[in-house]
Simulated assay, not measured.
Amino acid sequence: MDELVFILLQILLAAAIIGGFLCWLFQGLICKAQLEVGNKVILITGCDTGIGHELAKYLDSIGFQVFAGCLDTSSEGAQRLRVEASNNLKLVNLDVRRDDHVDAAVHYIQENISPEQQGLYGVVNNAGVCVCGEFEWQTWDQISKQIEVNLLGSMRVIKKCLPLVKAGQGRIINVSSVAGLFGYPGLSAYCASKYALEGFSQVLRLEMEKFNIKVITVQPGDFSKATNLLTSHHRNMNEMWGEMDATARQEYQNYFTAYHDSVAKSGFTGERRKPFSSLPQTFLTSFQAALLQKNPSGRYVLMPSNSSRIRMTLMTLLPSMVSDYFIAARYRKSLPKCDLGRSQASLNTITY
């Protein structure tokens, strides 16, 4: 009798394992199945440079009708889109902080889509601002700009585009960041904006489900060498120093300089015509999957390398106390050793 029970348990265990594997395989095949591009219309914000610029070109190349929102349609990046993309791509002057700009963009889209296109299939909220520097250093203008663009700008675009998205039974893609999953020293306001965007997206996903609208977050890692996210770093640094009072300058002098030296030496700051590297093809096809997969994931974490992908996976499995320890240790290691407030030298200006 005992032997029979043991055999039955083995059979049940084997059946459970095989059944689980088949379900996983079947689900994977369903999720990977993609819709046809057809005549689908999408709006992408922040297309002057970086991720938005490359994404607009890529999605245009696979057949989407792209409305590329640019902060300045006369900028070099916007003009390159005009030359390098098809005639199907249309530039839209779009500052996501301004109601009149977003209203005009929505009106322009309505005027330039055909009745059979049935509204907007996708809105990709990509426009973003990142300022590096500890919270006490950052000016209020720098803090508020990150919140206004990264969070409120995305919310404004979605709010005004929702009627078109509902008509198109479409998707909303919010470009968040791994900084919306973990807090990184030196990125306090940026992390705050991305954490808030994650929470907003989670709620909106549930609210829009009844309209068959999918809300997805894409969480890139550090692709700063392939984007222009930190081209204003030196100007931001000088603005921080300029607004510090004498006490703060004396206290942080060496540390402040060491921090910004470490960022500058990492090789991704400063104005330049082209990034040091390009976004990998897998990065762009992940956005394609988010837009076209029949059963997309709610979140796509995109890391620049296999090792960083493994690290991020492990970090999500660790208790927060342990992950905080590793992040803090890495931050300390990235800075040269210096004593706070002990320098006798005077720094009236810091320029690069």
Rank of each mutant, 00 (worst) to 15 (best):
176 S>H: 09
87 N>G: 15
148 E>I: 00
206 L>K: 05
9 L>S: 11
323 S>M: 06
142 Q>P: 00
276 F>C: 09
32 K>G: 11
230 L>P: 00
317 L>H: 04
303 M>C: 11
197 L>T: 09
37 V>C: 04
47 C>Q: 05
125 N>I: 00
101 H>M: 04
192 A>Y: 02
300 Y>A: 02
190 Y>N: 09
30 I>Q: 15
244 M>W: 00
260 H>E: 14
197 L>Y: 00
309 R>M: 13
225 K>R: 13
281 Q>S: 13
348 N>S: 13
280 P>W: 06
9 L>Y: 01
169 Q>S: 12
200 F>I: 06
62 I>K: 11
74 S>G: 08
218 V>A: 06
163 P>Y: 10
307 S>E: 15
177 S>H: 11
82 R>L: 10
241 W>E: 12
30 I>F: 12
97 R>L: 08
81 L>K: 08
24 W>S: 14
205 R>F: 04
145 K>Y: 04
169 Q>V: 04
173 I>W: 00
208 M>S: 12
168 G>D: 10
108 Y>H: 10
330 R>N: 15
257 T>Q: 13
228 N>L: 05
298 G>P: 04
288 Q>H: 06
159 K>W: 04
325 Y>K: 09
136 E>S: 07
215 V>D: 12
104 A>R: 02
314 L>D: 07
41 V>G: 13
82 R>P: 01
233 H>P: 02
90 K>M: 15
8 L>D: 02
100 D>E: 13
24 W>L: 10
211 F>C: 08
278 S>M: 03
269 T>H: 07
204 L>W: 08
285 T>A: 09
292 L>F: 10
208 M>P: 03
176 S>F: 03
232 S>F: 00
280 P>R: 05
57 K>I: 05
90 K>H: 08
318 L>G: 01
153 G>M: 05
167 A>K: 15
41 V>C: 14
271 E>M: 06
193 S>V: 05
7 I>E: 14
339 D>P: 00
163 P>S: 14
20 G>R: 08
332 R>F: 12
279 L>Y: 00
191 C>A: 09
183 G>Y: 00
208 M>T: 02
140 W>N: 15
280 P>D: 13
276 F>A: 12
119 G>D: 12
106 V>E: 03
67 F>N: 05
212 N>Y: 04
341 G>C: 07
311 R>F: 03
39 N>Y: 05
8 L>E: 05
35 L>G: 00
34 Q>E: 15
196 A>N: 05
169 Q>E: 14
220 P>R: 06
40 K>C: 09
343 S>R: 03
280 P>C: 08
246 A>V: 08
28 G>I: 03
222 D>C: 05
8 L>Y: 12
101 H>I: 00
182 F>L: 11
228 N>S: 09
194 K>S: 11
36 E>T: 07
214 K>R: 11
177 S>Y: 08
218 V>W: 09
274 K>I: 08
91 L>C: 11
146 Q>L: 00
235 R>F: 01
215 V>C: 13
132 C>T: 06
46 G>I: 02
132 C>Q: 13
323 S>V: 09
227 T>N: 06
322 V>S: 03
332 R>V: 03
